[in-house]
Design a protein around this nucleic acid. Structure first.
Lengths: 227, 227
DNA sequence: AGATGATCGATTGTTGACAATCATAAACGA
DNA sequence: TCGTTTATGATTGTCAACAATCGATCATCT
């Protein structure tokens, strides 16, 4: 049987706004005014404010009292922090699950890897990024540590914000087709230290590629702006 | 100069309620009704609801739509998760700061250690617990990783809830006077691996002592209840 | 008696209006 | 012309009343 849960306005608004930010229809840094949104959703400002508060505490919005609210923007340093913390958490998740990896876990991991490669081959970047997130989420979901999973989900939201910021906007591409070969095979193997090394390398490399890309971009554009 | 920030009702209420929960004047699991609290604070339900939402998302309160809100309670498994995740984060914080530990950091650490031992000698349990938290917070504050600090602060709140739950209520005592000797001396030394080992042992031992204490209690009381 | 349906009080969810504050820019004086 | 002061519009903060929902109690029927 289903839980049959009622959904309050606030919850629906939170979900809608999160989607709008993540798919780009609410551009990063753009102002968000309560009265305007309330009218669009057809509700009063009360529930809408509570939804905004939720997103503010989750880091999606920033607000200045009596002045205004905007969609958050992530600096390169912010993104660096997300990646570095994520590397530690993911190694910890594998440490937790290491001795209880069952067939179900292995199959799910390989299935996601297959799906990921198919999406990349088809050229569907958005699907590839979504599946890559699912693949990395698997270990958090299966490791049996609720608090760790919750922490990861908070980080994941920031990661998605990062993709909207730097990939979609600046034209960066999704993952390479062979990017997860070592990750998956080591995650299925028996050498934990090797996996830990690979997880850290994989995640920090993902950031390094972006950083190099962005720094190069910035130098090019600053050269133009100097004229 | 100070930031001179205005404080909105919501922020003040959040702080007040958090204190009330942490110092025990709002017992764990006790009901919290909006209208009642609003009257006590002399504000309307609007700002009060937003404050409650804040505490709900932070894990201090749990709510059921249209039904009621209560102060949260932590299960032993919840506490175990807090401690285990904390161990990983604290090792990571030391890894970050390891090569940039300066005199200021070392002095602050030793000062807090001295204060901690004095409080324990004086028998001031509450002060000792507060200082112990400050001591462990130091590395997060100095490691230069804002997101890690933020994550730690969220965990710290749950730790404080844990102390209210299991120490104050069940009569457990604060830290031993020599509990941090190895921790501090290794944090000032040059052997990172030894420190990492000690941090994990120190934190997990803190939980193990509590777990043994509680399990023993439970067995005793269940023996009585069975009559 | 047991199960089923209606009633009632309590609590949260929602609303629209009002107040406080801020940023901008226009008006003013030296 | 420059700096200061004073309006003004926009936006968030706050309020009190109303609606929706839930849990328990009581009545009713078989």
């Amino acid at each position: 049987m289903q839980p049959l849960k009622k959904r309050t306005f606030r919850e629906q608004i939170v979900e809608e706004l999160k989607n709008s930010i993540l798919n780009g229809s609410l551009p990063l840094g753009s102002p968000v005014v309560e009265a305007e949104l309330a009218k669009q959703f057809g509700v009063s400002r009360g529930p809408l404010r509570e939804a905004l508060r939720h997103l503010i505490e989750e880091g999606f919005l920033i607000t200045i009292p009596y002045t205004g609210t905007r969609v958050a923007t992530l600096s390169l340093d912010d993104v660096r922090e997300v990646f570095s913390l994520r590397a530690e958490l993911e190694v910890f998740a594998f440490k937790l699950i290491w001795n209880t990896r069952d067939e179900d876990f292995r199959n799910a991991l390989q299935q996601l890897h297959t799906d990921l490669k198919q999406s990349i081959e088809k050229g569907d970047e958005d699907a590839a990024i979504a599946i890559e997130l699912s693949l990395h989420s698997l270990v958090y979901e299966r490791c049996g540590h609720k608090l760790l999973l919750q922490t990861w989900q908070s980080l994941k939201a920031k990661l998605q914000l990062y993709w909207v910021t730097h990939h979609r906007v600046h034209g960066r591409r999704g993952p390479r087709i062979d990017a997860h070969e070592a990750y998956v095979s080591l995650a299925l193997g028996d050498d934990f230290d090797a996996l830990a090394e690979e997880v850290r390398a994989h995640i920090l490399n993902g950031f390094a590629r972006t950083e190099a890309f962005l720094v190069a971009r910035e130098q090019a554009s600053s050269g133009q702006q100097a004229s």
